[in-house]
């Protein structure tokens, strides 16, 4: 749910990074945090366990600049990927404007990717969204891993609505901004349609 404030001329959009445990959701937003101009970014809030696994969510506010005289601000959230945190994942999807699915390219994780997309569909539905129509991007992360499955195979397994698909190595920053941009484009184009 985009928040448009005509008084302060601001648009706020919520983007959620989703995916199985250890696929690199937090790594994506950490990289964005490190690269962003300190004037344009807020604090990176991480609710994580002692072993740095996401417990509830990570949160990063980003000021993107202006469109048609309105300040555009993105609120980036990650969900906890581990299966047993499903209740928390559902809460974080509340009121989101777009979803980035971070898939782990390593072949042994393919089943976890498929399960996580199915879980995303269910949780979106419970929040009143349809996975087939919400702004959505598929990121194929960890392309540098030796056991990475071929892109064509991953697309066949994980792609379902001709969504933008971006190859990434999030810990090196490859594909991270492109992914965010692909999602932002869909959200803003949706605003255009009104």
């Amino acid at each position: 749910m985009t928040f448009i404030n005509y008084a302060s001329r601001e648009i706020n959009c919520k983007i959620v990074y989703y995916g199985p445990g250890l696929c690199g959701k937090t790594t994506n937003i950490q990289w964005i945090f490190e690269q962003a101009n300190p004037d344009k970014r807020g604090k990176l809030v991480s609710l994580a366990t002692e072993t740095d696994r996401t417990l509830f969510f990570d949160f990063l506010p980003l000021d993107m600049g202006t469109v048609k005289g309105f300040k555009v601000r993105f609120h980036l959230y990650t969900v906890p990927g581990q299966v047993f945190y499903d209740a928390s994942r559902k809460l974080i999807l509340r009121g989101c404007d777009g979803v980035i699915f971070v898939a782990d390219s390593q072949r042994p994780r393919m089943e976890a990717n498929i399960e996580s997309i199915a879980n995303l569909a269910t949780n979106l539905k419970e929040n009143g969204f349809d996975i087939r129509s919400i702004p959505y991007v598929l990121q194929l992360n960890k392309r540098d891993m030796p056991t990475a499955a071929p892109v064509e195979e991953m697309e066949r397994l994980l792609r379902f609505r001709s969504e933008p698909t971006i190859e990434a190595v999030a810990n090196q920053g490859t594909g991270v901004i492109e992914t965010l941009k692909a999602c932002a484009r869909q959200i803003l184009m949706e605003l255009q349609r009104g």
Binding site: V67, L188, Q192
Partner: peptide, 16 residues
């Protein structure tokens, strides 16, 4: 009429 009905690809590129 939404004020964003005129958003273009260039506007979005500029944000990035």
């Amino acid at each position: 009429e939404s004020p964003f009905s005129e958003i273009t690809d260039e506007d979005i590129d500029r944000l990035f």
